[in-house]
Computed example of a mutant assay.
Amino acid sequence: MGRGRPGAPPRGTAERTLTSVGSAAATGGEAGRTDDDEPTERHGTARRAPEGERRETSRMWHITLSVSGAQAPPAEVRRSLERLAHDHPFLLTSRYAGDHAEIRYWEEARDLHDAAAVALRLWGEHRSTANLPPWEIVGLEVIDRETYHQRVAEGYGPPPASPVGVHPF
């Protein structure tokens, strides 16, 4: 789908695109899935670097993006989120109502700052292609894999992203 490794511009452009967790380009091969649809890769991925340069390591980050705004027909919101998920299969699950939505997914990035930057661009960059409502981002949570699993194990984290897909609140 034209997405490459994080930070690399797609062919023909100078801008960074969203990366698809689990795509061959993002991870160097097919990533498997576990019951909570987290990529099975257990540690960060070392990036190849020319001799003598420092290698960057990417990690997995669980993203929860919350958006809200003026009332929109729920059926249109659902279609828009389904289009976004179809165009960007890294999205795990979306929940929606007529005036707000929540998107959850895994992002591969070097650090929290990179993961948050990509997440904050998601809604605006895909507003027209997915016909998303003109809502604003009202919340963003970015946590590392260990924190995600610790919260789930202690019973106060989000339940595993299952069923995957677009669902009403």
Rank of each mutant, 00 (worst) to 15 (best):
H167Q: 12
T17F: 02
V152D: 03
A119H: 12
R11M: 06
P9E: 08
R55L: 04
E76H: 13
T13I: 02
E136I: 13
D35V: 01
I137L: 07
S58P: 04
T45S: 13
L112T: 13
E125Y: 03
P159Y: 12
E15V: 13
D111W: 06
A85F: 08
V118L: 10
G98D: 14
A101P: 12
A24H: 07
W123I: 04
H100T: 02
V164L: 06
E56V: 13
T129G: 04
S94M: 01
A26M: 03
R59L: 09
A85D: 06
V138R: 14
E107F: 00
A116T: 07
I103K: 06
L81I: 11
A25T: 06
V21S: 15
T34L: 06
E102H: 02
E15N: 11
R3A: 14
F90S: 10
Q71Y: 15
S68I: 04
E107R: 14
E51F: 12
W123K: 02
E82M: 12
M60K: 01
V164W: 02
D111E: 05
G124E: 04
R11H: 10
R79T: 09
G12Y: 06
P74N: 10
E41W: 10
Y105M: 03
W135I: 02
H113C: 00
A130S: 15
R151K: 13
